[in-house]
Amino acid sequence: MWHIGAFLIWLTMCCGLAALVGGAAERRAAALLVLAYVASFIAARIRAHSQYTAVYYDAWIIDLLLLIALYVLAIRSTRFWPMWLVAIHVLAVIAHLLRVIDPLMMFEGYYGIINLAGWPMAGIVGIAAFRHRYRVRRFGSDPSFATF
């Protein structure tokens, strides 16, 4: 289970960077990712089985709530990267639906889609924090949300 520790280090680095140097959008996205990870971790500990042979409805609900929150962030933000998060995370939500439709789906595919999507999502948030810091130094300000 080394991959869980590696992901936790990656998530901490990327979201920690967003919390330290990111703008409001980067900090909110980082908080959402960390919150979803903690909720998924708790749900996995409560769940009796973990062989990915059945649909994980608790993970599906967590992923659906994260998708909605990321979509709201993407709509309100002046950035383009939140849409990337939404696009990547849609794959995880669809994987749960596909598992319901086809219970004989290979468990490796189900595992891969719902677990591996978090790696690039955390990386995007970390890169976005660097880009925000660069724009602030270059232009003096970088508002995360449009004011109407």
Rank of each mutant, 00 (worst) to 15 (best):
P143M: 11
L104N: 10
L65G: 08
L91W: 03
A95I: 02
H96Q: 11
T12V: 12
V38D: 06
H132V: 10
M83G: 09
M106S: 13
G5H: 12
V34N: 01
W2N: 07
V55G: 06
W81R: 02
S141D: 12
P103Y: 05
Y110N: 01
A87C: 11
V90Y: 08
H49I: 07
R27L: 07
L73K: 01
D58T: 10
A29E: 05
A24V: 01
M105S: 03
F148Q: 10
A18Q: 03
A87D: 04
R76S: 15
G23T: 02
G123T: 03
C14Q: 04
S144L: 07
I42H: 05
I101L: 12
R28N: 03
D102G: 04
A30D: 04
R27Y: 04
Y134P: 00
Y56D: 13
V90T: 13
I101K: 10
R47D: 14
G123M: 14
M106H: 10
A25H: 10
V86C: 10
Y37H: 11
W10G: 04
F7K: 02
V136L: 12
W119C: 02
R137N: 09
H132I: 13
W10V: 00
V55D: 13
L116M: 15
W84Q: 08
L33D: 03
A146H: 05
I62S: 06
T147L: 14
T78G: 08
F41K: 12
L20R: 12
V72W: 09
T12K: 00
I68C: 04
L65Y: 01
I101V: 15
V100H: 15
I46F: 13
A30T: 01
L67N: 10
Y56P: 04
A117Q: 14
L8G: 03
I4Y: 12
L98M: 15
R137S: 12
G22V: 00
V93Q: 07
G5R: 11
A54C: 09
V136A: 05
W119S: 00
I9N: 04
S77P: 02
E26F: 11
A69K: 06
M106L: 08
L32E: 07
V93D: 13
G22S: 03
L35R: 08
A122R: 02
A25M: 07
A87P: 01
Q51P: 07
Y71H: 11
T53W: 08
I94L: 14
V100D: 06
I9V: 14
G118E: 01
G5L: 15
A6Q: 06
A92F: 05
W10M: 06
W2S: 15
Q51F: 11
L66D: 02
I61P: 00
F130Q: 05
L116D: 03
Y57P: 05
A92T: 13
L64I: 05
L64A: 15
V136G: 06
R138F: 12
Y52E: 13
I61D: 08
V125I: 14
V38N: 08
A129N: 02
S144G: 15
V55C: 07
H49S: 12
T12D: 01
A69W: 04
